[in-house]
Simulated assay, not measured.
Amino acid sequence: MLIRDIRDGPHARVGDRSVLCELLHPAHEEGCANRYSLSHAVVPAGEKTLPHLLKTASETYYVLAGEGRMHIGEENAPLREGQAVYIPPGAVQWIENTGEGDLLFLAIVDPMWSESDEEIC
């Protein structure tokens, strides 16, 4: 049985400047046959991620807490707890925290995230 807990995993600043805890990644977990990777992300109050894109993978954010504004290409919209947003491959994207507390969300990348697929703009 494979169980991961965000309280046990290290959170670290990543290329887009979010604070990330990788929960499940098939390339790093023996016996995990998922196509996707799953991470817990934090954008602290007053911060935003850098514009970036995934060349071939799609991404879905599911907001656990907080509120923000999602930017995908030329579009942007408010995003809050309980909402999910789909980010297509090749789309320049970034998210800003517009609330008073941390913006917490799950990031699901399909197929699994790889460093070579991500480009910081």
Rank of each mutant, 00 (worst) to 15 (best):
I3L: 14
R4D: 11
I6F: 13
D8H: 07
P10Y: 05
P10M: 06
H11N: 00
R13F: 05
V14Q: 07
R17M: 08
S18L: 02
V19G: 02
E22G: 02
H25M: 04
P26V: 02
P26I: 01
H28W: 08
E29T: 11
E29R: 02
G31E: 09
A33E: 11
R35G: 14
Y36P: 03
S37F: 03
S37L: 10
S37I: 11
S39V: 08
H40N: 11
A41E: 12
V42H: 00
V43R: 01
V43A: 02
V43F: 00
G46S: 06
T49Q: 09
P51K: 12
L53I: 02
T56Y: 07
T56F: 11
T56I: 09
S58N: 09
S58F: 10
E59K: 12
Y61I: 04
V63G: 02
L64W: 09
G66I: 05
G68W: 07
G68P: 10
R69L: 10
I72D: 05
I72W: 05
G73N: 09
E74Q: 14
E75M: 12
E75V: 07
A77T: 14
A77G: 15
A77R: 15
L79H: 04
G82L: 08
V85N: 04
V85L: 10
V85D: 05
I87C: 07
G90S: 06
G90L: 07
A91R: 15
Q93S: 12
W94R: 11
E96I: 08
N97T: 08
T98P: 10
T98G: 12
T98A: 08
E100M: 07
G101H: 08
L103N: 03
L103H: 01
L103P: 06
L104R: 09
A107T: 01
I108P: 00
D110I: 01
P111Y: 09
P111Q: 08
M112T: 08
M112P: 01
E115H: 10
